[in-house]
Structure formats: structure tokens, C-alpha cells
Design a protein around this nucleic acid. Structure first.
Lengths: 343, 343
DNA sequence: TGAAATATTGCATGCGTATGCAAGGCAGCG
DNA sequence: CGCTGCCTTGCATACGCATGCAATATTTCA
């Protein structure tokens, strides 16, 4: 059909075989680790391949082996530096094993994206979701197809979906204690989306611990994990008759919005008038301009765990979904009042 | 071979054909836009497909058609929010035409990454490079294979490589004039890497215009497009006997580093003691905490141009490489002293 | 040196889809 | 009613690689 679209047909194993004076299968074996080829012929083949500029056709290989060396990554909030970091770490670590990322940016409205169905078409080796959740249907289909699914930073009750999460409860608890020890009067929590399980878990731990400490009502708002969303609810909170003097944001990115609004629009001094604590410890949090107190959630560890899970599930298909939690720590900076004792 | 890895074999067109009582080719045609199928049979087929949970196998389709609907994206500085934005825009716009991104994060050391050779294996429809350059060998091979290459924001003299760039000369010229009108005494330019053509172009325009305006020597340093790199050279610049009072950074991201060091370590007032101007106008530049004067370079427009180019080259193979420049404008904020007149 | 064990090779086929070609079906027309 | 032409459909084959199996070459061991 396509004789010449102006482009020469790429050389194939047969071409290499012809030049090297061997069979096509010999060439194939030369590229298959552990296959039976004499060292001398392999060299002969590789030489011929180099001469022709041959590169194995991954699509054909995938068709034959059912393994693509492609991992699908679904992500919603690429503007949040934390997730940019996740992408980067994941890409670099997968590359070490010759794998690549097929990117699916999903709309941040929480709903599972229909375009995600494409993962089944591309025969990806695994599907990693960060800050998104898979639909029930997709989960079932992937499980049937033997494609492991790992969700980073989102909960899910769906069958066969592995979870990697940060230290949600512990962090929220410690932050509650830290703020309380700092002698604040009125507390607020700015979560992500209403549906986000992760956000809910942090909220419950934060509010719960504060209640134990005698704080009756804690303000709760949702910034939808976006800068603009967080800015809006911050504006609302700070406009109240009795505005909060301590805000815990479910992500650094939203905490930046809170700081921005507080300083720019309300002319507040941080941390004198208002303490703000974030979550993630993204690099920007340490900038002088932000100086954000936060709880670290190492992207590298999350990614390591995710890769570990998919590898183990690929090695032993049919294995049960796993659940991992990585550790972090409270990072003390200048955006939150410190307790008198620790001063 | 693989009888059951614990995973059922995914349904194929033949399975659908059997259930629908037609031939495999009929099923194929049902999924091919513009193919000859009766509407009644198509519906019958789609129904059967739905029933089986059939999804076309893109790898097989690619093998047969030599089109994968995959665009390779090579990127170095994912931590720079500007490029995160590029990735996001590109992903969303490609999705509109059913295409996806295969991600290649390359090491930021300027050298073309050997892992990029994989693009030839994956039979991608095009290759887009942002803030990286393709090796000569890769350029030749891609051209031979009919794979269009577009570089966003990097120059290249290689054959067959299209370029999409921001308003480098104009921006640098205007920034020079703006700073000069602001009555500064000592100017510095913090570029990216030494090899970066983009950086060099901006440097030349900036230094050249200042020279025209009577400024003899302009300090030139290289921050390697990284936050840390820019922080280091800023430290050096500000430690000089006669430190600059006006710095133009080749990216907002580096400008943040400059601001960070200036305020935190040198306790400088911006813009009274030091004016800083960036390039890109990333969202963070408008934050109160940064309030960065900069020159906009709309990621969306760059991406639009890139997609436009690859589409036109796919439509008419063998077409010559193209070169586009998108427009931007000087964004006045608080990080640089304004000329008296415009106050 | 000869036979058995092993390493290497080629042959043939399958992976799932697209498409040229020819055959069959149908409507329109005279 | 018969013929022409278009619309549908199926058949057969190609796409590039992997692999089981059988054939052959090489080594090992007695």
C-alpha cells in the first residue's frame, strides 16, 4: 500500500538477516537476552544492524510478546509542582529498565476520564494514576487483562487496585498538635475535592485530633487542589467575622494560594496574624518567598513503591492488590507560629 | 506460549466477528472512518464489541498502518513550571485528535540523550523536543523514517528540524530598553547553558541593545536553566565589588532563584536595590510572593504552532522544515524599577 | 576416534489489524 | 425483465518479530 510516503521503509530484521547472511530468527535472537546465539554470529548481526541503522520495531515486538515496555501514567494536576516531580521521578526510574511513560492528562474534575480506556488499546504493562481514580469499569477490564493498576495518593475501594499513599493520618495529627501548641484560636482546613478520599482522611485526622485537644469547631473548606480554588476559599475564610488564625492546606500548592491571598489582599503578617501549613514539601516551599511550614511526602519514595508494586505484579500475575505507605516528617519553616517551648 | 498468565486473552476482531456473524475484515472496517460498511452491520458489530469489551489493539494497528497516534515528547526541565505547562497543553491538545504523548525525560546536560533513539522503535508519528536538541544522527534517521521533528525553544542547524520559538530578540531588546530607562548602573544577564542557542540569542540582543544605549560592559553568567545553578551565579554576581543592580534572567524559574538569593542572603530590597526581570511569564510569576516583571511567552501558542507543523508535515511528507515565532509582551510587575516617565 | 550431549541455526507459524481484489447483492434504468 | 453500476462483504495476504520444533554443527567424554 504505502510504497513511498516520501519516507524509506525502515530496515527490518529480515534486512539485517540478509546482510548478515543469517535467518530472521537469528536476528531476533540476537536482540533477545538469554536467547541461544553464538557470540560470533551475534556480533556479525549487530554489525549488520548498525550498518543499516536498524532499530527493533517495538510495536511488532509487543504484538508478538504482549509486553510493550510502556507504562501508562494518568495525572490531573501537572501544574502542581509535586506532581511534576512525580512524573519526573517516575520517568527516570522507568527508563532504567528501558520503559517509557505514555501520558494521560485527565481533567481534574475527579471523574475518571473516558480517554483512559485507551490504555487497553496500547497494551501497556501497567497503569499508574496520580491524583486521579480509575473507574470501576476500567479497573475490572484491567484486572481481566492482567494490567496492574497503582494509585498514588488517592484512595479506592475498587478491586485489584494497589495504593501508594503518604503519611496522611500521622501528618494531619502532628500538624494539629503543632498548631494547637502554637496557641492558635481558630482553625481551618482547606482540603482538595469533596470526593477525594485522601483529603477526607487528612481532614478527619486533623479535625479529630483538634477535638481531642478541646477545639470544638474547625472550619473546613475545599480548594479542589487548585491554586485558584484555594485562593477563593481562602478569601472566604479570611472575610469571616472571626477568621481563622491557623490554616492547614492539603497541599503546598494550595498553601501558596492561601499565603498569596492573605498577604496580598488581607495584608496579614505570617505567622503573626496567620499560620499556614502545607503538605508535600515541594521544592518551592523552601524558597525564601514562601518559607512554608509543611509535612514532607517524598515523591521519590512514592514512585519507588509504585514501581515495586507493578514489577511484583508483573512477575507474579494474579497477585493481590497491595497497599503501601511512605513516611515523611514535619518541616519547620516560617509560615507557622512555633510553640513557645520549641522556640 | 503464554497460555494464561493469569490473564484472559483480550478479545480480538475475530472474536467480535464471530459473535456478530461477520468477517474479521468487516469488524476492521467498522472501526475505520470512511470505510465501506453498511450502517446496519456496523451497529451489529459495535454491539457485539461492547458485549465482549473489545478494544482495538493499537500495536497491531500500528504494525499494519505504520501510524501509532503517539507523539514522542522529549523534555529536560520538568521542574520548571513553564515546561510543565507545555506538557500539559500538548497533552490536552493532542488528545483532541486521539493522540498521546510518549514521554522522554532527558538529562539536562544539553547532550542529546541516547535513550531518544527509542523513538524510532516506537514508530511515533512525530517527535517534539522542548529545551533539548536532537543529535545529528537522530535527526537524519527521523528524516529518513519520515518522522517530523519540532524543537520548541531551542535552535538547531540540523537538517529537517522545525523550530518553534518565542520572541527572543524582541523581548531581550525591550527588556534592555526598559531597564536602561529605569536608570540602572550595572547590568547582568543570567543565561541558560553555554551551548543553548536560545540563551545566546537573548544574550546578544540584550547586550547589543545596551551597548547601543551606551552601556559598555554587561555581566554575563550561566545558570544552566536550573534553580540551583541560577542561585549559584547570582551569589557570585552579588558578591562582586560592584554588583549589578539590574539582572535579566533567561527564564522565570532562574529569576526566582535570583530573587531568593538576593532577598534571603543579601537582604536586598527589590526593586530598590536590585531589579530582576525574567522570561516566560509562568503562573507563579504573578504571585504576590514573587511579583516578577517578565516577558510572556505563551506556552499554548508554542504548542499550537508545534502541532500545526507536525500535522502539516504528516499530511505532506517530505515537506521542508518550518520555523515559527510566537509573540509575547513585557509584563510589568514589581520586581524591576520602572522608568520615571511610565510611573 | 566415535558416540552422545549440547549448542546453534533455520523453518514455520502466530500475534491482531488493514486493505487490495474479486465476488456477491442490490437498485436503477431502459 | 435484463443489464449496468454501485455498495457490501469476504478472502487472502502483509506488517515485523518471537518462539516451538526439528535439523545441523560443535563440543565433550570415554
Amino acid at each position: 500500500m504505502r510504497a513511498k510516503d516520501g519516507a524509506k521503509r525502515a530496515p527490518t530484521e529480515s534486512d539485517v538477516a540478509r546482510l548478515a547472511g543469517v535467518s530472521q530468527s537469528a536476528v531476533s535472537r540476537a536482540y533477545t537476552p538469554g536467547a541461544s546465539v553464538a557470540e560470533s554470529t551475534r556480533e556479525k548481526i549487530l554489525k549488520a544492524a548498525r550498518e543499516l541503522g536498524y532499530h527493533p520495531n517495538m510495536m511488532a515486538r509487543t504484538l508478538a510478546t504482549n509486553r510493550s515496555n510502556i507504562v501508562a501514567l494518568a495525572i490531573s494536576y501537572l501544574d502542581n509542582p509535586f506532581y511534576a516531580q512525580v512524573v519526573r521521578e517516575l520517568s527516570e526510574k522507568l527508563r532504567e529498565t528501558g520503559r517509557h511513560i505514555l501520558l494521560f492528562t485527565t481533567s481534574p474534575d475527579g471523574k475518571a476520564d473516558p480517554a483512559l480506556e485507551d490504555v487497553l488499546s496500547y497494551k501497556v504493562d501497567a497503569l499508574i494514576l496520580t491524583a486521579t481514580t480509575a473507574s470501576h469499569e476500567l479497573a475490572v477490564q484491567c484486572q481481566a487483562a492482567g494490567v496492574p493498576i497503582v494509585q498514588i495518593n488517592r484512595e479506592s475501594k475498587l478491586p485489584g487496585i494497589s495504593i501508594v499513599r503518604g503519611p496522611n493520618e500521622l501528618a494531619a495529627t502532628k500538624i494539629a498538635e503543632f498548631l494547637h501548641a502554637g496557641g492558635h484560636l481558630r482553625y481551618a482546613f482547606i482540603g482538595g475535592t469533596v470526593e477525594s478520599g485522601t483529603s477526607k482522611v487528612r481532614e478527619n485526622a486533623f479535625v479529630g485530633r483538634l477535638r481531642e485537644l478541646g477545639v470544638k469547631d474547625v472550619l473546613v473548606a475545599h480548594g479542589d487542589y487548585t491554586f485558584e480554588g484555594a485562593a477563593i476559599v481562602t478569601r472566604q475564610l479570611l472575610s469571616m467575622a472571626e477568621p481563622p488564625d491557623a490554616i492547614f492546606c492539603a497541599s503546598d500548592y494550595m498553601a501558596f494560594a492561601t499565603l498569596d491571598v492573605a498577604k496580598r489582599e488581607f495584608n496579614l503578617k505570617v505567622p503573626d496574624d496567620l499560620s499556614v501549613i502545607g503538605f508535600d514539601n515541594v521544592p518551592a516551599a523552601s524558597r525564601f518567598a514562601w518559607d512554608l511550614t509543611t509535612y514532607s511526602q517524598p515523591a521519590g519514595l512514592l514512585v519507588d513503591a509504585a514501581i515495586d508494586i507493578i514489577d511484583s505484579m508483573i512477575a507474579r500475575p494474579g497477585r493481590r492488590a497491595q497497599r503501601r505507605e511512605v513516611q515523611g516528617e514535619l518541616i519547620l519553616r516560617g509560615s507557622a507560629k512555633r510553640p513557645p517551648a520549641s522556640a
